[in-house]
Computed example of a mutant assay.
Amino acid sequence: MSATQEYWLSGPIPEVPALLQPAAHALLQSVREARQYVSDFPEDKLWEKPFGRASVGFHLKHLTGVLDRLLTYVKKESLTDAQFQYLKNEANGEDAPSSQELILNFETKVNEALDYFKTVSETTLTDERFVGRKKLPTTVIGLLFHAAEHSQRHVGQLLVTVSVLKG
């Protein structure tokens, strides 16, 4: 597969159920694009908020945090204190890792998600799940699809923010 070919054109990911292939491809594409967009991004601008918008650092931290939380909900687990603390600090650049470390953290979480996808039976995709303290209803496939589309949305915002800050 070439570096310019999108993941959805690369064929199925082994052991990932057919109905989860689009979500898996989108997550892999998110990692590739995030890495590409910040490859030569100046670290001193990582937490800068152009026009009051979210920083590049926020988007990179948020990608990992959201995916982690959505995987927790799909497994019918409650968020931990550590996850709540991470959420609270997603916009905080104090003592934050470099952009490359943030991308590596996201890639690690995507690989964890893909490993989870391989354990999901397609017969459970419409099983009910609940999100947050309010226990908002969704399904297994709803959570996994949202994880993918949410990642793609933030990578798009990341691209715009990087472009603005690099001028």
Rank of each mutant, 00 (worst) to 15 (best):
I141V: 14
K61H: 04
D95H: 05
L28I: 12
A96Q: 00
Q36E: 14
D40T: 10
K88W: 13
L70M: 10
S30K: 09
H25T: 03
Y37I: 11
T138M: 03
K118Y: 02
G142S: 07
D44C: 09
E48L: 02
G93L: 02
D95E: 10
F84S: 11
A148S: 08
E48P: 00
D44P: 09
P50Q: 04
S39P: 12
L144E: 12
L136F: 12
A147N: 01
R32E: 03
N105W: 12
L71I: 06
R32M: 10
G11V: 01
L144S: 12
L87P: 12
H25E: 07
V74N: 13
T139K: 05
H146K: 02
Q21L: 01
Y73I: 03
R69E: 10
L104N: 15
S99I: 06
L63G: 00
V131Y: 08
L28V: 12
T123M: 14
F106W: 02
N92E: 03
I141D: 14
A26F: 04
S10M: 13
K61R: 06
V66G: 04
K109T: 11
N111T: 08
D44S: 10
D127A: 06
K76M: 09
L63H: 05
E77Q: 10
S78T: 10
T126W: 14
T123R: 13
L87I: 13
E43I: 08
E90L: 00
G57R: 02
G57V: 04
L71R: 05
L144F: 12
D68K: 07
E33D: 13
N92M: 07
L19D: 09
E101S: 08
F106S: 02
P137E: 05
S98M: 11
S30P: 01
S98N: 10
E33K: 15
E122H: 05
P97C: 09
L114C: 05
D115C: 07
K75C: 00
V66K: 03
G11K: 02
F130A: 10
S10C: 12
L46T: 01
S30F: 06
V16S: 00
P50A: 11
H146T: 06
G132P: 11
R129W: 12
V74Y: 14
Q85T: 13
A113T: 03
S10E: 12
T119E: 11
F106V: 05
V66D: 04
T108A: 04
R133K: 14
T139E: 03
R53T: 14
V74P: 15
P42F: 07
S55V: 01
Q100L: 12
R133H: 13
P22V: 04
G11Y: 01
